[in-house]
Amino acid sequence: MPFLNFSYRERTTAIHGLNPVVKLAWALSIVIMAMIIDHPLVLGLIFLSTVPVAFAARVHREWLVFIRIALYMGVIVVLINALASTGGNHLIWQSGINLPLLGPLNLTLEALIYGVFMAVRLLAIISAFAIMTFVLHPNDLLMVMLKMKLPYKTAMLTTLSTRFVPVLLEDAGRIADAQKSRGLEMDRGNILKRIQHRSSILLSLLANSLERTIQIAEAMEARAFGSITKRTFFHSIAFSRLDGLIIASFLLMLAASFYGIAAGLFEFQYYPVLNGFLMSPSGWVVTAAILTVLIGLIPAARLKKGVDFDQA
């Protein structure tokens, strides 16, 4: 599964050159808005705003892999919601079957739309996180976590585990090759047999990683890890005025969306009948403001040109 490599991609794009705090703030803002905003149209637009960022960072090929997986997951969400939800007045299809606990198995337009809305929410969150991990260097992530006053050991552990994802994937591939060569059938036979055989890969992988872990711990100890509580840092994150401006605009955007929700501008009703597709003019104004900030990240990143003397 080498395509499922969820780790940093070295590129020299303006997006990669952004301050790591900005990258993290961008992804977090999208996740927060995706969680609180209930209007399907606004949510859809927020998701769409991540697409040009993926292209600008030239990680769209890797990103698409994850979007595809998110889409499969989305389809499942839609199906489950459509079948399990009993709300909604517009019947599309009636099975006539009465399920225990869930009631009649019916498909309504409202349940379908609600499922789609949940899927878009998922898509927006996965998209933002995928892009962030592709453009945020693990070392930078470590620095950001330290800036956020997380304990060093916790932060170190997190970045260390991201470093070993590709190593583990490689290990898994090699183990599968070795065991297939021994005569273990991985891709044929009934489901039970397959699961059994795949679990033997996991066991080997576990044994391998346990050995790795001990060796790494030893190597860290031999380099005085944790021996002095007050650690120093060679690299640091430098903030430019532009970085401050971008982060301020994110905060404003979050404030605007909170205001939009409080003022009922993004109100949308799913059950029993859909209501609220047409937003009020002030709703559109707030949405436009949010999108301006999100898309504005790309030209803002490009403003940072010339020689960068601050970044360590």
Partner: peptide
């Protein structure tokens, strides 16, 4: 200072 067998298992950053 100590250097170990497998270079992969003594690198902690990227």
């Amino acid at each position: 200072g100590m250097v170990f067998q497998d270079p992969e298992n003594q690198m902690v950053t990227s």
